[in-house]
Structure formats: C-alpha cells, structure tokens
Nucleic acid binder design. Structure first.
Length: 286
DNA sequence: CATCAACCCTGAGAGC
DNA sequence: TGCTCTCAGGGTTGAT
C-alpha cells in the first residue's frame, strides 16, 4: 500500500535521483528518470483510472508536453508539465515502472501506458483499479484539501498540539485523515503510535504538549525510516523496498512487542485493522 | 463536527 | 482438485 515513503521513493525514482535500478533503464548511458521526456501517444486500458478529464481528452492534452518537474504532495505524485499538471494517486495497489517501449500488448493490470517521444515509456500498473490520474490546469483543485506535510518545518510541536486540541476524534483515524495531515496510511500510523506509546483510540484533544511532541517526532521517525528503506513491499503492491522487515507492530499480532515483550493485539478502528501493544499503549483518557 | 456504512476492485485464503 | 465465500484496504460519498 503506497503511503508517503513509498510515493516519495517512486518520485525519486522517476526523477532519476533514486540510485536504485527498480526497472531497466531505457538509456543505459543516459538519465535514469523521466524528467524532460515528452509524452507521445498514451494508451488507457481502464477508463476509470482517469479521474479528469475524460480519457480521450486526457490523452490528447498530454500529447507533446514535456515533464518539467516531479514532486510529491501527501500520497500524490505531482508532474509539472508545460501546460498542465498531472497528478497520480496510487491508492492500494498502484505502481509505476519505466522501461523501453515495445509493441507487445499491455501486461496484466497495466492501466495507463505513457509512451514518450523517445524509446521509453512509463506504465501505471494497478491491480485493484483504485488508483487515479488527473490532468489539471490548477493542481490545487485536488491538492488544496490536503493537510500539512509531516516534514513541513512550520509544523512545530506547538502547532501540532493545537491541531490535536481542536479535535475530539480518536487519534488513529485523525492521523489517517488526509485533510488533517497528508501522507499517513494504515501502516505508518500504527508504527508511529506504537513508537510514541499512544493508544490508537485515545481522543486527540486529550494529548498534552509532551505527548504531541513525541507523536510528531515518532511520525517523522517512521516516515524517515520508511524512506531510507525505499518503502515497504506488501503483497502485490510496490516492490521496491524492504521496510516491511522492520515493522514494530503492523501485521505482527500475536508476536512480541519489541519494547516490552507483551503480545501485540489487533483490533478494528474505523474499519481498519489496527495493531498495537496493550502494555505500552495504554488508553489513558479514552 | 463526528461516526458509520457502502462503494470501488482483486486475489488470497478459508471452507467445503 | 476446484469451486464458492469472505475479506482487506485508501479515499470518497451520503446518511445519521
């Protein structure tokens, strides 16, 4: 499941600054990424993978535009083009690879094939068809609703504490709410709450300054570690990284807590599987 | 404002 | 072996 670290890893790979050969480079002696490449014909094999505009217009407008910059905002990949902005959200099972063009039919679960004017192509592969691409004049139309980036220097412990203070919701669904904070998903939320020793059902407004500070530090720590390990490769989704070997609690129910040795439990919180240590993460005030 | 269920999808795993 | 059933999971939408 691509969350912030996985999307960041893919953004770096697409910029050619990654250092890891996730897929074969079409240019052994040239740049690894897709910066500067110009879109040619684009093939859509699942119409609903395109959120906006309709697929024919999406392909037509893309044709001839070069990629100027690639960044990440929350879990969105942001492509700055000459006339438009393209956003891609990988959701549950999306992945992107770059490879030499060939004339073979699309592979299984390839939803969008972006052929470039040179001999390369970029392929959006998405088993569960939840991922989406947008082509927009103003990216804020979609990105405008997002909360702050976890690494934003303006997001200080004091600011974070005030944000938490205004909310009565349970802390876990709040951290996963992209309008509150951008980039956290199920895995990194469970990991951060365990590191900060906060129970997933704790009401956000009950956290004191010290707990808020520690939680923000934990969020940044697990995200940094995730990025350092090129993300986590779960099941069929994105296979670049190995952070899954370093989970503290996620999908480790029944195993020992690395801090205290108690058994990690799994409960449902807001329809999401939630993993925590009942000894380290005590519910203080509910 | 908060909670909740339904929805979108597929493949893995369980049960038979 | 092979069929059918159930379920996870991010984010959006609509109901309460």
């Amino acid at each position: 499941m691509p969350e912030l670290p996985e999307v960041e890893t893919i953004a770096r790979f697409l910029r050619g600054t990654h250092g890891l050969a996730i897929s074969r480079s079409p240019h052994p002696n040239g740049p690894l990424g897709v910066l500067g490449r110009k879109f040619a014909d684009v093939q859509v094999t699942w119409q609903r993978s395109i959120a906006e505009p309709a697929a024919p217009a999406f392909c037509a407008r893309l044709y001839g535009q070069s990629i100027l910059e690639i960044t990440r905002r929350g879990k969105f990949l942001v492509f700055q083009l000459e006339k438009d902005w393209m956003l891609i959200h990988l959701r549950m099972s999306g992945d992107i690879r770059v490879e030499p063009r060939d004339e073979n039919p699309p592979g299984l679960h390839d939803r969008i094939i972006f052929n470039f004017a040179d001999d390369a192509r970029m392929v959006f592969n998405d088993t569960r068809k939840f991922g989406r691409a947008w082509l927009l004049k103003d990216p804020q139309q979609v990105l405008g609703n997002l909360g702050p980036e976890p690494f934003d220097p303006e997001l200080t412990a004091g600011v974070f504490h005030r944000m938490l203070n205004e909310k009565k919701r349970a802390i876990k669904p709040l951290l996963m709410d992209q309008k509150f904070l951008a980039g956290m998903g199920n895995i990194y939320t469970d990991e951060a709450l365990h590191l900060a020793r906060v129970h997933p059902l704790e009401k956000a407004s009950t956290l004191n300054y010290s707990q808020a500070e520690s939680l923000l530090r934990a969020i940044r720590e697990v995200l940094t570690e995730g990025i350092r390990r090129n993300g986590a490769s779960i099941d069929w989704a994105y296979r670049g990284g190995d952070f899954q070997n370093y989970f503290r609690v996620y999908q480790r129910n029944g195993e020992k807590c690395p801090l205290c040795g108690d058994n990690i439990e799994r409960i449902m919180v807001s329809q999401r599987g939630t993993h925590f240590c009942p000894s380290c993460q005590l519910l203080e005030k509910g």
